[in-house]
Design a protein around this nucleic acid. Structure first.
Length: 663
RNA sequence: GGGCCCGUAGCUCAAAAGGACAGAGCAUCGGAUUUCUAAUCCGAGGGUUGCAGGUUCGAUUCCUGCCGGGCCUACCA
């Protein structure tokens, strides 16, 4: 409703200005929020219009105020120096709409969206860096679905790369394990932890003797040969670790629809199909000489060709340092090439498809599919989507942009325009946290603000460990607060709190900020945290429980209990301003979610949730409800609580956070 | 060398398309009628937004230069 009103206002103001000065090109109408509610709910700065309209901002504001006429939902317009038009919403009108949860129809863009996230190498346990990726991706999916978009969730699995090869080397060379022995190990509860340590040992083994790296190369090649024993072992390991990753993510309510694997991109010859088109379109050029002699290369994204007016048909030579090798001189293709083919598939531009097999069934009966060479019939249709979002950390932005440029070079500008690299910064550790983990710090490291995690060194915080710690910590608190509840109930509540804390923690930072992970902050349940917001909802629910009223249906009867007139009464004056601030904040959830989608920044929603919870807590503290003697006023206060509770639950759900019955 | 990102309170971070006095949390200190559970609330201190210019009616935000930090820049994935 809030965003609806904002849009309506912007249109009317623009219309008013255009009518007054036909033919003049005007800057866009920017709508902001005044610094205080007393000033109004929207603010329009008129400074940008002074020049084109050849009039003082204050005069323009005055003109709009007197000429614009009535607007549904807007109560009052005020001119404020030095050149603002402040607009007040018709509070009772808005509150009535909000109380009854009226949603004006929104225009939903057509076309399916594909969100790819997680993409953890299936050779070791998931760590906190992977958690940030998965939580960002999963949250973005929830936001898109909130906005009525249809979304497929994919998790790309690199099961044939060096990382898997390294663990294969560990099992076969360092531990001399047979396939049967490895198979037995995969049935261990946390097989991914075993691999975590082994991976670190293999890395050390490579360091110890450079000759050892030859083994890696041989293993890597053997894995790509589908029929080999090594490939079978790699499959065994990667599938087992992948299952562990799905289990870990499921603990956080993160699910996937489809797991495309690199092995199928290889075996189904996706690259061959793409290669022909890339050569034909001139995206790839063959190097006859120089450092990259014998390779097929393309221009790296962001280099040269500053002037796109040259029409793409550039036969000019690409400088050597601007070349990205796509096909090596030995004829093998690098990962960017495979990625180009894969992304052509995503947009339905390749002419090939995966085979599909049911792989994993979630407790809620949802099936997750995996790629295979020839799969089962009756599978859902994946790929061939209108828009994609790839949740991949910022280090890969150049590679991502190169894939986008390849699509553009192939003539698929539409696809390239709907390809979004959802880029975010890594999770690192504070020096203190690194020390706690037993990592020896150099003097230089101690002065850094953060230290990068390293799977290769086995240095980092595992996702399951962190979850276990969060649950244990929350459990302790729940145990002491609610000893009368059963063990299972207490554990359930502790788990919800732990997930709330973790998901909020990963979402409260903006994407471009490196998270310096610290146990103290991550384990905090106070202040700007998930549990703070959960607690606000628990308090709201508690009021309704004690009042013997159902919070979900309470507002349905509101029009009977509380007329617009009485809403207007309670929402005016000094105390009314305080109530209105809360109602206004509650009305913004959809608006904020729109902003999050448009900017691919879920942190705004985290901020909104916190502000709403904070306003509610203040309100809760100041206005006793159950003891309120004035029945009409009590109804109004209850309505306020019901609306805030509903919006907080929706907003938290967008972040994948649920609310326990008690805390 | 080239490209991208960052520098804001003691610490960790906000400030959405350039707008009204730069805001939160943590930490510190001082408080809250034994109440709808205090995982809460109220208050206090704390800032030349890295530095220097420029554009603008207006700059934390845009431009240029410097200083400091990070990442990318492999015939690895």
């Amino acid at each position: 409703m809030y965003r609806h009103l904002e849009r309506r206002l912007a249109q009317r103001v623009l219309g008013c200005l255009q009518e007054r000065s036909p033919g003049v090109t005007l800057p866009p109408v920017v709508i902001e929020q005044p610094p205080k509610v007393e000033l109004g709910d929207f603010a329009i700065p008129l400074f940008p219009f002074a020049k084109p309209l050849r009039s003082a901002p204050l005069k323009i504001a005055e003109m709009i105020r007197s000429e614009i006429g009535p607007i549904e939902g807007i109560a009052e317009l005020q001119v404020a120096p030095p050149g603002y038009l402040n607009i007040k919403i018709d509070r009772a009108w808005m509150a009535a709409a909000l109380a009854t949860d009226q949603k004006p129809p929104a225009d939903v863009a057509a076309g399916k969206i594909l969100v790819e996230h997680s993409s953890i190498n299936p050779n070791k346990a998931a760590h906190i860096g992977h958690l940030r990726n998965a939580i960002l991706g999963d949250t973005f999916v929830r936001l898109l679905r909130y906005a009525s978009r249809i979304v497929d969730i994919q998790n790309y699995i690199d099961n044939t790369g060096v990382q898997v090869a390294d663990v294969v080397v560990g099992f076969t060379q360092l531990e001399k394990k047979s396939r049967a022995e490895i198979e037995a190990l995969t049935r261990q509860p946390r097989f991914d932890y075993y691999c975590w340590d082994l991976y670190a040992r293999v890395s050390q083994w490579y360091e110890a003797d450079k000759q050892n790296k030859q083994v890696r190369l041989q293993t890597l090649h053997a894995i790509e040969d589908a029929g080999s024993e090594t490939a079978a072992i790699a499959e065994l390991i990667s599938i087992a670790v992948l299952r562990r990753h799905l289990e870990t993510m499921d603990r956080l309510d993160i699910e996937y629809d489809f797991l495309p694997r690199e092995s199928e991109i290889l075996h189904l010859h996706f690259w061959n199909a793409a290669f022909g088109k890339l050569k034909e379109s001139g995206v790839l050029t063959f190097e006859e000489s120089g450092r990259n002699k014998g390779c097929w290369v393309m221009r790296r994204a962001g280099t040269g060709k500053a002037d796109p007016a040259t029409d793409g048909t550039d036969d000019e030579k690409i400088e050597e340092e601007d070349q990205k090798v796509i096909v090596r001189s030995n004829g093998t293709v690098g990962y960017v090439g495979k990625d180009i083919a894969y992304h052509m598939w995503k947009f339905g531009l390749l002419g090939l498809d995966f085979g599909y097999l049911k792989f994993y069934r979630y407790p809620n009966q949802h099936d997750c599919w995996i790629s295979t060479t020839d799969g089962e019939k009756g599978h859902p249709h994946f790929g061939d989507v209108a828009e994609i979002y790839n949740v991949i950390d910022a280090r890969q932005s150049e590679a991502q942009n190169t894939v986008i440029e390849a699509l553009r070079g192939l003539g698929h500008g539409e696809a390239a325009d709907h390809y979004t690299h959802f880029s975010y910064e890594m999770v690192a550790l504070t020096p203190r946290c690194a020390a706690e983990l037993g990592y020896m710090l150099s003097e230089e490291d101690k002065t850094r603000s953060y230290i990068e995690v390293s799977g290769r060194k086995g240095f980092g915080v595992k996702a399951d460990d962190l979850l276990d710690q969060l649950i244990a910590s929350a459990k302790k608190e729940v145990d002491s607060r609610h000893p009368q509840l059963s063990e299972a109930e207490r554990l359930g509540i502790a788990t919800q709190i732990a997930i709330g804390a973790l998901r909020y923690f990963m979402l409260k930072y903006t994407k471009q900020s490196v998270i310096a992970f610290d146990f103290k902050e991550a384990l905090s349940f106070e202040g700007e945290t998930g549990p703070y917001a959960q607690y606000a909802v628990v308090r709201a629910a508690s009021i309704f429980r004690k009042a013997g009223v159902d919070a979900d249906t309470f507002c349905d009867t509101l029009t009977v209990n509380s007329s617009p007139d009485s809403l207007a009464t309670y929402l005016s004056g000094d105390v009314g301003n305080e109530f209105w601030e809360l109602w206004l904040a509650a009305s913004k959830t959809s608006y904020v979610i729109d902003q999050c989608i448009a900017t691919t920044e879920p942190a705004y929603l985290a901020k909104h949730v916190f502000q709403l919870a904070q306003l509610f807590n203040t309100f809760y503290h100041r206005h006793p409800i159950l003891t309120e003697p004035d029945e009409k006023r009590k109804q109004f206060l209850l309505a306020t609580v019901a609306v805030v509770r509903r919006e907080l639950i929706h907003a938290l759900a967008g972040m994948g956070i649920t609310v326990p019955p008690v805390m």
